[in-house]
Simulated assay, not measured.
Amino acid sequence: MRKGIYFFIFSATFGLLFFLIIKFLEVLNYNWVEIWLRDWIGLQILAMLFVLSLGAVALAFLAQVWRAQTIRARLHPALEQIRKGQVYTSLDDPVLDSDLRALGQSIHSLQQKRQETENENLVEKAKVVTQERQRIARDLHDTVSQELFAASMIVSGLRQSRLDVAGIQKELQGVEGILNTAQNDLRILLLHLRPRELEGRNLVSALETLLAEVEEKSLLKIRLEVSVDQLPSEIENHCYRIVQEFISNTLRHAEAQHLEVYLKQTAGQLQLKMVDDGLGFNQQENKEFHYGLANMEERVEDMAGRMTLRTAPYQGVAIDIRIPILKGEQDENSISG
């Protein structure tokens, strides 16, 4: 390609010189044919001038090619020096040197911004870890620690009491209830300690594992219905954490016996519905549940979706989430209720 360009430039230069000589002869009222046939001296002079002109043009052209090749050979090391943040060797070309300085400044600025972003991410991750540790410590102190302390005090009191067998059985039943509550609170804490991401699994597999574990370690009867195609990883992670949050709230507050999770993908939309048959709550009064609800709403907003909550005291909780997706299997059936 480059050789073709050079040949074109050389040919155009040769044609231009020939054209100028013809015009020069016309201005001097010389006839080209007469010079060719009769005036050999004039013809030799013209030929010499033509060759000299052509040689000068060729030399100028070759000089430019050589300069371009030289700059090209020096440009790569200069770009490599700029990439490494070093002071590059000048190319002795004011325009290129100016462009390279601007490029170096831009790269340096981008590197600084990237480093600042990475530092901010590290600080944010450290902040999240600290907050999570504080939350776990607070939850352990407010729930399990207090419950175990209460059970310990009751058992300690029994050693000094003079209760009959019926009284002791009643106290032990109370201790059993406290320990069962502590065990349930520990399950909730362990649920929050599960990985925030899917660890290479798809959403369906992760939900099956999570719900099977919850059903095994609690009194909940769980139902899972899934009909999905492949989903973007970001949507899968958000949905997984939303289900985790809902289960946590159900175990902590609902006193439910059944929990149902439906996940259905239709054309252009993903529907996630979660239902329990627990105590429900008054949306204007229950502040404890609102924290988990706010987390779910934030995740839904990140996916440009919408969330509908239906609940009332002693009527359970139903959350219906609709998330737009770019593609999906056509399915006209939706989860009703």
Rank of each mutant, 00 (worst) to 15 (best):
R194P: 00
L251P: 01
A56F: 14
S233L: 11
E171H: 11
Q69F: 01
I178G: 08
Q315V: 01
K113G: 01
I247F: 06
Y291R: 04
V33Y: 15
A294H: 07
H76M: 10
D92R: 07
K127I: 02
V33A: 11
R194H: 11
E297P: 03
R2G: 02
L231A: 04
V175Y: 12
N119S: 08
Q284K: 11
F149S: 15
E197R: 10
Q315Y: 05
E120V: 04
M1H: 12
L326H: 04
R2S: 06
T308D: 13
E26N: 14
E260Y: 03
Y240I: 05
A318C: 13
I71M: 04
A254T: 02
V214M: 12
L270G: 03
I5Y: 11
K127F: 10
I21K: 12
L54A: 14
L59E: 11
I222D: 05
R322F: 09
H192L: 05
D99H: 09
S11H: 12
L224K: 04
L259P: 03
L198W: 03
V228D: 01
S248V: 01
F14G: 07
Q86L: 09
E80A: 12
I323T: 10
Q173A: 13
K170P: 00
T13A: 15
P313N: 02
D97P: 02
D92V: 00
V57M: 14
A294Y: 09
V155W: 06
E329D: 06
E208M: 07
G337F: 11
Y30V: 15
A312V: 05
K221P: 00
G268N: 04
D164L: 12
G268W: 06
L43T: 05
V243S: 04
K273A: 10
W36G: 07
N237H: 06
H76E: 14
I107M: 06
R196C: 08
A68V: 08
L43A: 14
Q265T: 06
S248E: 12
P313G: 05
N121L: 12
N249H: 05
K327F: 09
L231H: 06
I41H: 10
D93T: 08
K113F: 01
K127A: 06
F61M: 06
T13G: 14
T266P: 00
I168G: 00
Q315F: 03
L259W: 07
L189K: 06
E26F: 09
I325T: 08
Y6K: 12
E80I: 10
Q265C: 03
M303L: 15
N29H: 15
W40I: 04
S156P: 00
K264R: 14
Y314G: 02
S233Y: 03
L270W: 07
A137C: 00
H141P: 00
A318R: 08
L198N: 09
P324R: 08
V300M: 03
I107N: 04
L54T: 14
N237T: 09
